[in-house]
Amino acid sequence: MENKVIERVVTWARMKSPWIIHFNCGACNGCDIEVLDALTPRFDVERFGVMLKGTPRHADVLIACGPVTRQIEARLKRIYSQMAEPKFVVAVGACACSGGVFDGCYNVLGGVNSAIPVSAYIPGCPVRPEALIDGVVKLLSTLEKKEEPAPAVSKTV
């Protein structure tokens, strides 16, 4: 009984204040500036308790933009492993979802799911801040329903 209450409080806290870390794993900057845009006054995701953090150890959600390049792959995996459980990855933009326009380039592995498991995909080139907010809120609402987030898809891990 007691455990259940604590669990509910923790879930509530997590939903009301997800801390995010933003990582560019080879993007063109288009999605990155839209992610930052979402934090600034016009869109202001802080009203949902979302805060941008500087270190993966403080973050619940990894916002990954861009296709995974061969050189960044190891870093992306390391950042993912440094995050505390439970952790979620949001692939932001067409490139992060599938490799997008860079799919097939010699130095590109593909989408973020080719390196780490992904919980939510937000398409768009670049994503609009509204789409980003919608995606993050949808990810959080899966937590509320106590459902597992979308099954982790991974090619290599």
Binding site: G26, T69, Q71, R75, F102, C105, N107, V108
Partner: peptide
Amino acid sequence: LGYNHRGVEKA
């Protein structure tokens, strides 16, 4: 540098 190299010129 080079973390962001995608190979645009070749593509």
